[in-house]
């Protein structure tokens, strides 16, 4: 990791240059969802000013609602125990990967010279989770259409993976915007963290399998790397 990277240039978006009033601390869930989509800077300003306890719980509520909703769609593919295991595992992937990677994000953002405290990092991660989950809810009809037209778990897995990555990338974009408002000068460390976070999330989907298909046990008996698992799933699907 080079420390000789050029400092991140200031944003040239005129909308970003204007001062933005921080979001009110008592903003409801609908207002928060609206802010995440349209006015994320006001939300980040609120993180910086403090008095965010209520907002944190509501962001967590939005994230859980979105992940559970998407998990129901994922579980409906196989039915049976997956009706409850699917939503639980989708939540575990989203929240688990964030929890595992939280300490490294805190230290990496500090190495990038961001003026953050641990609570700021928790808040930004919650905002990232909430925005990703809102987008996943938006993808529900798309995922449902595909799930009605195939019985291939490997194919559906790829569809969910694609939708998940798109949703997560918007969440991570919000995370970067947040760190830039906290004066991060070197973004290489957080970019490296994003790679670690994505690999952790993908590995969690394998560690908690089956999330989509069927198996005799709720959790796997054999430990595998996610690329190995995907490869085997595709080969099995083609042979069937």
């Amino acid at each position: 990791m080079s420390d000789h990277q050029q400092p991140t240039p200031p944003t040239t978006d005129p909308a970003d240059a204007e001062p933005v009033a921080p979001l009110a601390p008592d903003t409801g869930m609908a207002g928060l969802a609206d802010a995440l989509l349209k006015r994320p800077r006001g939300l980040i300003e609120r993180f910086d000013r403090g008095d965010v306890s209520a907002i944190e719980w509501r962001l967590l509520g939005i994230a859980l609602f979105g992940y559970v909703g998407y998990g129901v769609l994922v579980g409906s593919f196989s039915g049976g125990t997956q009706w409850w295991a699917g939503p639980l595992k989708v939540v575990a992937v989203g929240v688990g990967a964030s929890a595992i990677c939280l300490p490294s994000l805190y230290v990496f953002s500090a190495l990038g010279m961001a003026r953050v405290r641990l609570r700021h990092v928790v808040d930004l991660l919650l905002a990232q989770l909430a925005l990703s989950s809102i987008l996943l809810l938006g993808f529900l009809p798309v995922g449902w259409v595909f799930s009605q037209s195939t019985r291939s778990a490997a194919f559906m897995g790829m569809i969910h993976l694609g939708l998940g990555v798109i949703a997560m990338s918007f969440g991570l974009r919000l995370l970067f915007a947040g760190f830039q408002l906290f004066e991060m000068r070197r973004d290489g460390y957080v970019r490296l963290w994003v790679m670690i976070f994505l690999i952790t999330s993908l590995q969690l989907t394998t560690a908690l399998r089956p999330i989509l298909g069927e198996a005799e046990t709720v959790l796997p008996q054999e430990k595998k790397f996610f690329l190995q698992h995907w490869g085997e799933s595709f080969v099995r699907d083609i042979e069937d």
């Binding site: 300490p103 805190y106 990496f108």
Partner: peptide, 11 residues
């Protein structure tokens, strides 16, 4: 830095 990576290593 190693302490921050410890949860990942445990995972």
């Amino acid at each position: 830095i190693l302490a921050a990576l410890a949860p990942l290593v445990l995972f």
